[in-house]
Amino acid sequence: MPAHANRIDVGDLNVYYGSFKAVEDVSMVIEPGSVTAFIGPSGCGKSTFIRTLNRMHEVVPGARVEGKVLLDGEDLYGADVDPVVVRRQIGMVFQRPNPFPTMSIRDNVLAGIKLNGARIRRSESDEIVEQSLRGANLWTEVKDRLDKPGSGLSGGQQQRLCIARAIAVQPDVLLMDEPCSALDPISTLAIEDLISELKKNYTIVIVTHNMQQASRVSDRTAFFNIEGTGKPGRLVEMDDTAKIFTNPSVQATEDYVSGRFG
């Protein structure tokens, strides 16, 4: 089990797409072994911000970042840091399930290992596949068809397959960008249960549009807001989830969580 020492420290982060500043001046601390939820209206930069935490943001042409993101004191954006290595430590699950269509369920789970060129013995890979799929609560449903294509699964199963794929490389942190927004309520509950399980071993950051979800799964909640179109998104406040939903310190947060806002 990875030691719980994966504290993320964000300092004065500005995030740009070309000349457009999408997120402004965000500072926050994400405690190891916690679940942190990001909430806020559409377009306020939640996805943009979460993608800066594992250097996925710069995959977009012209995108760049100013400021610091420290993982255990080490700056992810330091001069000699290889983004590929960062992403192995900080995994990500996307809004839309995206299993590799050319690969079987088994190969999807092993993708992060095999595609990196590692050679592993069959017994070892069997173990990784089983552990990861169990970890993602998918094992019993797919154990008899591991060699079938991953794209043949239902949406909820596909998303759990993507989670299994992400945890198979044993990251320390797991980022999830609206992992349930393309799923039905039952699959959503399955994933929420899974998050409470995963939190024992991973630091989790989840973007969600669903207030109940945020209050159910997270320890801490960060509320992002935007003043108007074309303006950058900002972190309004971040606090314990219970406090954010009952007694936030900023009026805008209260308006948003009580549904009096957009």
Binding site: N54, M56, V84, V85, V86, N98, F100, L115, A166
Partner: peptide
């Protein structure tokens, strides 16, 4: 999405 999925796994 498939490219991003691969990058997010730490694949060069």
């Amino acid at each position: 999405e498939l490219r991003e999925a691969a990058y997010a796994l730490g694949i060069p």
